[in-house]
Write a protein that binds this DNA or RNA. Structure first.
Length: 197
DNA sequence: GTCGAGATTATCT
DNA sequence: GATAATCTCGACC
């Protein structure tokens, strides 16, 4: 199902709704297992922090569209825009599990040795699905990229990094959400480097 | 399995 | 010219 009204909320509320959702592009379908909320203009880490630009124009548009961007020259990341038009807000898709089109995904991600690696990471997710800058701005209800929200709320946990409680006032964007126990989630760098002897 | 450094291009100041 | 929401590879335990 796809209900745009569900997406017209703050990204921190939309993020958990996207967990378990199915994202389909062509022959490949991915079940989202990890996402991260971005609050546009309020988030210093967001591309929209300094105001509207070419790249982030989609984030200011209607909810339920795909926002793609290029980073480090080699990687593409995908976001789902949320909040009503005029508000820059989006949810970054960080990881997922390939549930259909495995063969296609494997070909695209030749460097991945296991299926769990196919869409483990924002840029990898896009490669596995075949998402490019060309797909930016498409409507997720009718475009080449389709979003299918889960019928029931998914169980999820958030990542307030190593139990940051105070939030003293430095990092204001620890809004990471993922499905606990999923092998395709967050195997990448830890937020807190472990100290070696 | 885990840590550390480098690569590479679109976009904005 | 500076910046960026990352990935891959090599070294070590």
């Amino acid at each position: 199902m796809f209900d745009r009204e569900l997406l017209e909320r703050p990204s921190t509320e939309v993020a958990p709704l996207l967990l378990g959702a199915l994202l389909t592009v062509g022959d490949v379908t991915v079940r989202l297992t990890e996402v991260e909320a971005y609050l546009g203009e309020l988030d210093p880490g967001s591309h929209a922090f300094r105001g509207p630009g070419r790249r982030n124009a989609v984030m200011y548009g209607e909810a339920g569209h795909l926002y793609t961007y290029f980073t480090y020259g080699m990687h593409v990341c995908a976001n789902v825009t949320c909040s009503p038009a005029g508000v820059a807000s989006a949810v970054l898709l960080r990881a997922g599990e390939v549930v259909a089109g495995l063969e296609t995904a494997r070909m695209r991600r030749a460097t991945s040795k296991t299926d769990a690696d196919l869409a483990r990471g924002p840029a990898r997710l896009c490669v596995a699905l075949g998402i490019t800058l060309d797909d930016g701005g498409v409507d997720l209800a009718t475009g080449r990229v389709r979003l299918d929200l889960p019928a029931h709320a998914q169980e999820f946990v958030t990542g307030p990094r190593t139990g940051v409680s105070g939030a003293g006032g430095s990092d204001i964007y620890p809004w990471r959400f993922w499905i606990p126990g999923d092998p395709t989630v967050s195997p990448y760098k830890r937020s807190v480097p472990k100290k070696r002897n």
